[in-house]
Computed example of a mutant assay.
Amino acid sequence: MRSMSRALCGAAMAFASAPAFAEKLTLAMPGVPPVFGSVVTYVAKEEGFFKKHGVDVEVRNFDSGAAAAQAVVAGSIDASLSPTPVIVRMISNAGVDLVSFYGMPNPDWLLGSVDPSLSKCQDVKGQGVGVDSIGGARAVALEQLIRPCGLKVDQVKLVPLSTNVGAAMLAGQLKLGVLHLDDVPVLEEQLGKKLTVVQSFKDVNQRSHYLVMVALRDKLKEKRDSYVRLVAALIDATKFTLDSKNLDRVAQIATVTGRTPKTAKETLPLFVRIELWPAGNDGLGKDNLEAVVATEKELGGIKPGKTPVAYEKLVDRTVWKDAKALAGK
């Protein structure tokens, strides 16, 4: 009888913590197909973590994280996972009231070449380089990848291809492209040779930031409980993703990125090693984000006369804090 009472009490508490109905949020992911950073979101969807936390999440893919953020500003999307430098530019230059409530601090960008004769940073001058979009994440990353040899982005030819940069390199349409870690094994397998890495992000920028999940500040305030539940689901999904026992299942879910289960399984440990998905924190560290703001000011991404966004305006860390209290329950 006592055990039954405890069970009923637990059920009542769980019911009390769940909303009367699941409010719908529309979440935009970068890339068609989406980039690997989105895998945790799809794990949350496929493994039922959104449902568990009482939030109905529709996931949509956009050509780029920049386009996804613009949809948030337009009001057609509730939140997006977008490149941090792009968000810093949007807030600083245009004064849009976006706020970050979750982040991924560790970029995996690299500048790859299928032509061994184009192996040095200075070789990139005047060449066509595959990126996602003009002003998108890969284009912004390229600015930092070629900075060590004194090149600026207007000294190369940007070729916008969404997430199809690797495919264009395989087809012989391009010799150079800004790539993700998971692009490398695919290219090497199909090329039958090693890809030449001209420059990797970890070599040129030790303190940076990759992606932030953003919403309009007013909408975050209006639907705050749903955003908290969204992040709680992502926290649980991250824990599931990082557990090696779930590698096969996560690799299967990761096929949404266009990778085969085999390639996804081989690549997942590489992303775990660089701590792509934050565990035990919100991924919004002040030092990393302020470093992005400083870099964007130096590169001219923040226009002259514009005030760089302050860290306190850029983030809302209370959402993750409240979500952490829900996660795992």
Score class of each variant (00 low, 15 high):
residue 120 K to W: 00
residue 122 Q to M: 13
residue 122 Q to Y: 07
residue 123 D to S: 13
residue 125 K to C: 02
residue 125 K to M: 04
residue 128 G to K: 15
residue 129 V to I: 12
residue 129 V to R: 06
residue 129 V to Q: 06
residue 133 S to P: 04
residue 133 S to F: 08
residue 133 S to H: 06
residue 134 I to Y: 15
residue 135 G to S: 08
residue 137 A to E: 10
residue 137 A to S: 15
residue 138 R to C: 02
residue 139 A to S: 15
residue 140 V to N: 10
residue 142 L to G: 03
residue 142 L to F: 05
residue 142 L to V: 04
residue 143 E to Q: 15
residue 143 E to Y: 04
residue 144 Q to W: 11
residue 146 I to Y: 09
residue 146 I to N: 06
residue 147 R to C: 01
residue 147 R to Q: 11
residue 148 P to Y: 07
residue 149 C to P: 10
residue 151 L to T: 13
residue 152 K to I: 00
residue 152 K to F: 02
residue 152 K to N: 14
residue 153 V to W: 05
residue 153 V to A: 11
residue 154 D to H: 14
residue 156 V to E: 05
residue 156 V to R: 07
residue 156 V to F: 10
residue 156 V to S: 07
residue 159 V to H: 04
residue 160 P to A: 01
residue 165 V to N: 02
residue 166 G to F: 01
residue 168 A to D: 01
residue 168 A to Q: 12
residue 172 G to I: 06
residue 174 L to S: 03
residue 177 G to M: 07
residue 178 V to N: 08
residue 178 V to F: 03
residue 182 D to F: 13
residue 182 D to R: 12
residue 183 D to L: 07
residue 184 V to P: 04
residue 185 P to V: 07
residue 185 P to K: 11
residue 190 Q to S: 08
residue 193 K to I: 01
residue 194 K to L: 05
residue 196 T to H: 15
residue 197 V to K: 14
residue 200 S to F: 01
residue 201 F to A: 08
residue 204 V to C: 14
residue 205 N to K: 14
residue 207 R to Y: 01
residue 207 R to Q: 11
residue 209 H to T: 00
residue 211 L to P: 01
residue 211 L to I: 00
residue 211 L to H: 15
residue 212 V to M: 09
residue 212 V to I: 12
residue 213 M to S: 06
residue 213 M to V: 12
residue 213 M to R: 07
residue 213 M to Y: 12
residue 213 M to E: 08
residue 214 V to F: 04
residue 215 A to E: 04
residue 216 L to D: 13
residue 216 L to W: 00
residue 216 L to C: 01
residue 218 D to T: 12
residue 221 K to Q: 10
residue 223 K to Y: 04
residue 225 D to L: 10
residue 226 S to K: 10
residue 226 S to P: 11
residue 232 A to E: 03
residue 232 A to D: 02
residue 233 A to C: 13
residue 234 L to M: 11
residue 234 L to R: 06
